[in-house]
Design a protein around this nucleic acid. Structure first.
Length: 473
DNA sequence: CGTGTCTGCCC
DNA sequence: ATTCTGC
DNA sequence: GCAGAATGGGCAGACACG
């Protein structure tokens, strides 16, 4: 942290023009996520560089890496960077005169090196920590760090943030970098929790709201005043080109009074002939670039669950219940094209249980997908809980107002489909939470059964034992 | 022009 | 996406 | 409790190679 702060200070002081690139490098990216620019440097390249720098055959490195001498990401990049630095010092200690700054020096290094590597020193979050802490130190105020983080979560664009910080300072950041239609905000993510009763305990006495968590692709749809539509993924990638049908659907199904919006939803593969939801696998086979409406083979249904912006006004400061009301008022539902996520708001355990059971029951209408062992590996995660109180720190920051004064919470019950093959092994896992819930119940039943008949079952049916406890195998 | 490799992103 | 670990 | 790092399956797209 200190090192990062010092580095940033030094850069600001010595070579301010390098600040933006440095910021991007520290964030493991080279542009805002929605602009779709990538490094294109992965493990294989890094290993090549390591092999090159240390004079070891690439095959051997790869062999080692597969077996006992696993070099992890951080070590790989470090090794590569050190190796390159060593080579650089030996062979090219002199810099051409036109090199003015450390960043240019790095560029030069990359140019003279056959393979280049960008050491991933830290993740974007760490960077934000360092950057905001540095600011906090600079202005002698802890609030500064949070301001920067908040700004980034609603406006993830370092170009603007860095220049705004340099020109107008941190205190004006909420004004200079605020939510903008067309720029994706950081999505609200679900958090796992152990079981229904845990959730009820946690939110004791508080009215909670529960909804299905559909298994598809998260999408944040921006509809601009001029009718332009942009769709962003969970990681804020621009995926508009993959879903021309979704663009058409939201344009058609928004109500006439709606001139702009940001819709948070799950895009789920849907078979309109069979009237059923398809597994995620189907969705992922869709082409991703420049898809034409006539090219589409896998249709999708939009399951809408939140509205973040409406008719020129942000709704980020409203609580979820209000946002939902706006959502319901702003779109026409059309079965198999755009539906609102099934939800209830209640503090009654039985009612919640009912919704949960319904979600479990929904598996009947859903297709089978291929085994996903990792989903069944014995975790006790049952529900996904998404609560503004719990999650404001990692989702929408508290400061932009998602902590609800009236304590209304989003409580996402995992719902949806998984299914059993005829033989009885778990074949699909559409909604992880439900599958796991079911699994946990099975296990509980099984262990009860076993403890009840420990004595008779002396010869130990090992197959049944393993099969029942680890559906993944 | 197919095939295999690599990368990044979806979950 | 899940899981583990260290703070 | 939270953040970070490591982990898995599967896919399209970009690219190099023969």
């Amino acid at each position: 942290m200190e090192v990062v702060c010092n580095l940033l200070r030094t850069v600001i002081h010595a070579t301010p023009d390098d600040l933006l690139p440095v910021v991007y490098l520290f964030s493991c990216c080279i542009a805002p996520p929605h602009e779709g620019l990538e490094f294109g440097i992965g493990e294989s390249t890094v290993l090549e560089v390591v092999a090159d720098a240390y004079g070891i055959a690439l095959d051997r490195i790869k062999e080692w890496n597969k077996k006992d001498l696993q070099i992890q990401c951080a070590e790989q990049t470090l090794l590569a960077a050190l190796g390159q630095a060593a080579m650089y010092n030996e062979e090219d200690s002199k810099l051409p005169p036109e090199v003015q700054s450390p960043l240019e020096e790095v560029s030069h290094l990359i140019e003279i090196s056959e393979k280049c590597v960008i050491a991933r020193i830290s993740s974007s979050d760490s960077f934000l920590q360092g950057w905001s802490t540095m600011l906090a130190i600079k202005v002698g105020h802890g609030e500064a760090a949070d301001i920067v983080k908040q700004a980034y979560s609603v406006f993830p664009d370092f170009d603007k943030i860095v220049s705004a910080l340099l020109t107008d300072g941190v205190w004006l950041l909420p004004k200079t970098c605020k939510f903008t239609l067309g720029v994706p905000v950081h999505p609200m993510l679900a958090k796992p929790i152990n079981c229904v009763s845990d959730a009820l305990t946690k939110f004791k006495g508080i009215e909670i709201t529960c909804e299905y968590k559909y298994d598809g692709e998260r999408a944040q749809i921006h509809y601009l005043e001029n009718g332009l539509v942009e769709i962003y993924s969970r990681k804020s990638e621009r995926i508009t080109g993959k879903f021309p049908d979704v663009v058409a659907a939201v344009s058609r199904l928004k109500k006439i009074i709606v001139s702009s919006f940001v819709l948070d939803c799950e895009l789920v593969a849907y078979d309109r002939a069979m009237h059923k939801i398809l597994i995620l696998q189907e969705l992922s086979t869709r082409a991703r670039k420049d898809v034409g409406t006539s090219d589409i083979e896998v249709n999708v249904c939009i399951f809408a669950f939140d509205l973040l912006y409406l008719n020129g006004q942000t709704l980020l400061q409203e609580n979820l219940i209000i946002r939902r009301e706006h959502l319901y008022a702003s779109f026409e539902e059309e079965s198999e094209f755009l539906q609102f996520a099934t939800s209830i708001t209640s503090n009654d355990a039985e009612e919640i249980q009912k919704l949960f059971d319904k979600a479990v029951g929904a598996r009947q209408s859903i297709d089978i997908m291929q085994k996903k062992p990792n989903l069944m590996s014995g975790s006790k995660t049952v529900f996904e809980v998404k609560a503004s109180d719990l999650t404001c720190s990692s989702e929408y920051p508290a400061a932009i107002g998602l902590v609800n004064p009236d304590k209304l919470l989003t409580f996402i019950v995992g719902g949806g489909d998984f299914t059993f093959s005829i033989k009885g092994s778990l074949r699909g896992a559409r909604l992880v939470a439900v599958a796991k819930m079911y699994k946990a119940q099975e296990q509980r039943k099984e262990s009860n059964k076993q403890s009840n008949m420990t004595n008779e079952d002396k010869d130990g049916d090992e197959d049944a034992d393993k099969g029942d406890h680890r559906l993944s195998r």
